[in-house]
């Protein structure tokens, strides 16, 4: 009977910090790309939904179905089409961001009070100017709230992407599991939880920076 392996071998971990750091960076990149691409697509779809109200239902229904599919299944369905590639991972990851982002962008823009829009129109703003200078700044809290959920969700889903051959912290988990080496998989899991919580906190800060008026109002 071999001596029981400790849950975490700190000495091993200390010798391999470079590996963990590398996986962490990969993880962040996979997440950032997915959220950025997802945001661009969502923004366009949200504007379409706002301009043509009838499209909002079908758009949220379609992205809602996508959102319901478990990540491992969506990755797997894409594998025969795009292979065990980054593209496969990113298509699925982007897909998961759409529902939350579209919903929040639409809610944010439509939540702008009617009289504010009328004031903007009275000042001679066209549709585009009004969107950029009035509606979007006022929608920032709701949009950032959406980005926050989308990012945190994506951080979690990226760990699963390792199962279809991608890097990131999930790679540490999978290597650890296949080698039955708990130090490795616990490190991957704990780092991914930490990353998710940090990302969540970062968005809270971002929201404060982007909407100074909210704090000014609270202080009064």
């Amino acid at each position: 009977m071999p001596e029981r392996e400790p849950l975490i071998r700190w000495d091993w971990l200390a010798d391999h910090t470079d590996d963990s750091a590398e996986r962490l960076v990969e993880h962040i990149w996979l997440t950032v790309i997915a959220v950025a691409v997802g945001f661009v697509i969502s923004f366009v779809l949200a504007l379409v939904a706002i301009r043509r109200g009838r499209t909002y239902g079908p758009i949220t229904a379609a992205t809602g179905i996508l959102y319901t599919i478990p990540s491992l299944a969506l990755f797997a369905i894409l594998v025969p089409i795009t292979g065990l590639s980054v593209l496969t991972a990113e298509i699925a990851l982007v897909g998961y961001t759409l529902l939350i982002l579209i919903r929040n962008i639409v809610a944010g823009i439509q939540g702008v009070p009617r009289d504010v829009i009328e004031a903007a129109e009275g000042m001679g703003f066209g549709t585009a100017t009004r969107l950029i200078r009035v509606e979007l700044p006022l929608a920032v809290p709701v949009i950032v709230a959406g980005l926050r959920i989308a990012t945190v969700t994506t951080v979690g889903l990226v760990t699963v992407a390792a199962l279809i051959g991608q890097g990131g912290l999930g790679k540490l988990i999978d290597d650890g599991l296949s080698r039955r080496f708990s130090t490795l998989y616990i490190t991957g899991a704990v780092l991914s939880v930490a990353l998710a919580i940090l990302a969540d906190g970062a968005f809270v800060l971002l929201q404060r920076v982007l909407t100074p008026w909210a704090r000014a109002r609270a202080a009064r």
């Binding site: 951080v155 979690g156 699963v160 616990i186 998710a196």
Partner: peptide
């Protein structure tokens, strides 16, 4: 609610594994 939303499910699975 906040923690539940932030924690990746795969990570939870792996952390309870030992």
């Amino acid at each position: 609610a906040n923690i539940g939303r932030a924690v990746p499910s795969y990570a939870v699975l792996v952390i309870v594994f030992p």
